[in-house]
Amino acid sequence: MLRKQIHLTGYIDVPNDRLVEINAALPEHIRLTLLEAGCVSFEVTPDPEIAGRFIVAESFACRADFDAHQIRTKASEWAQITQGIGRSYTISTSD
């Protein structure tokens, strides 16, 4: 059976009054995600044109790895710190 990679792309718009907190927590969120089983890539970078927007691009080896990431993240400090912040994501698959 062929396992399809899962890709998430999009952005998170961080309000100005929460930027310091988000920027402080982001390196640990990235570090922990890159350590996860099946994490192929994970990048969160500031948008050069829109203040407070961070571009998100992540890939996981398969749906199970992506789902495990979602479960871990929802129970993480990152989820608490970013609670209520708007996100816009698209999820796709590839061979």
Rank of each mutant, 00 (worst) to 15 (best):
A79N: 02
K74D: 14
I71W: 09
E21L: 10
Q80M: 14
E21N: 08
Q80W: 13
D95W: 13
L2Y: 15
D67N: 07
F60D: 00
V20L: 13
N16L: 15
I81P: 01
L32P: 00
L8C: 12
K4R: 15
A57K: 13
G84H: 07
I12R: 09
R63I: 06
H29N: 08
L32H: 02
L26E: 02
Q70A: 10
I91C: 07
R72T: 04
A57R: 14
W78F: 02
D13A: 12
A24I: 09
V44G: 00
R3Q: 15
I50S: 07
R3S: 13
C62E: 14
N16F: 15
Q70G: 09
Y89M: 11
A61W: 08
I6S: 08
W78D: 00
I50N: 12
F42T: 00
A25Y: 05
H7T: 09
N23P: 08
I22Y: 10
R87P: 01
G38S: 01
R31I: 05
R3A: 12
V14Q: 02
D13G: 05
R31V: 05
D65Q: 06
Q80L: 12
A51Q: 14
D13T: 09
S92P: 04
A75D: 11
A25T: 05
Q83M: 13
I30T: 07
E21P: 01
E58P: 01
R63E: 13
D13F: 07
N16D: 15
E43D: 14
L8P: 01
I50F: 10
Q83F: 14
